[in-house]
Amino acid sequence: MTLPSSDIERVRFGPSSAFSAAFSGRRSAARRNRLLLIGSVLLLVSVHLLSTGVRQGDLSSRPRGILMEVMYPFDAAMARMARTARRIFRSYLDLVGVNQENQRLKTRLSQLDLLEARLAEMEADNQRLSQLLEVRRALSMNAVAANVIGGDATGMSRTILVDRGERSGLKPGLAVLSEQGVVGKLIAVSRDSSRVLLLEDHNCAADVLDQRSRIHAIVAGAVDDGVVLKYVQRSEDVKPGDRLVTSGLDGVFPRGLLVGTINQVRPQSSGLFLDVRVAPAANFRQLEQVLVLTEQPARSSDQN
């Protein structure tokens, strides 16, 4: 007669072993249930965070500020290191294949190249900052210049990190500009750094005015990495080449700032509106310095 394997185990190890196996099974099931329970509770907490829309200053937004503060020195150091590496790489690019005879001269040359690259970089910085200063003067509003030190943590949103925060008088909702035009607005501010939601993000929008036809519309980011003009009816007068400027009605951007130029207009396959693509004035890929307005403009009345 053959015994079932469980009975063999029981015979071999005795009843206490079967009891301990059953006990350990129950314990692991309890542990599994506990993990699923705590996981579900945390899932509900995240749903709560998502649905309530946490504001700056709320208790649940504080850890975000602390995280940004912790990461700030690291991000700033990496940005500095990358700029230095880029400078050195550019300077040494032409010096590949140096022979022994010219070593001394080449070393001297490379030092001069480094110096030149540094000077060129400083000159470019100077030029950008001067242009930002011009923008600031033209706006006659208080503003601070900030360096871009990081980007978005995922590929699905378009945000950047800048090295100015509460200590420079910044707060969420302020407008961010470059010498070329509108960049976006602040969404999170910590002591020394802030996160900017770029105009090309699909959650960012600005009220704009077509400079030629004076029609109002909303400029917003598109998910497929572009900027679009929303809610323009088929009958409205918009053409490729039209310049779009801020209307000042959204209370974030002052009136008259360049947002971009219309580069494509076509009717949507269905619906009432036109599909209008916009070439933004600011080059979001090459932002190094930006200007943050430290005060919000008064809502201008419509002066069509």
Binding site: L42, S51, V54, L67, M68
Partner: peptide, 24 residues
């Protein structure tokens, strides 16, 4: 489970405009 929640929250701090989206 708590670490996974923290990872999501940390991602929210450095991405997008809605706290809770990545956490969820």
């Amino acid at each position: 489970a708590i670490l996974a929640f923290a990872l999501g929250y940390a991602t929210d701090a450095f991405s997008g405009s809605r706290i809770g989206l990545n956490t969820f």
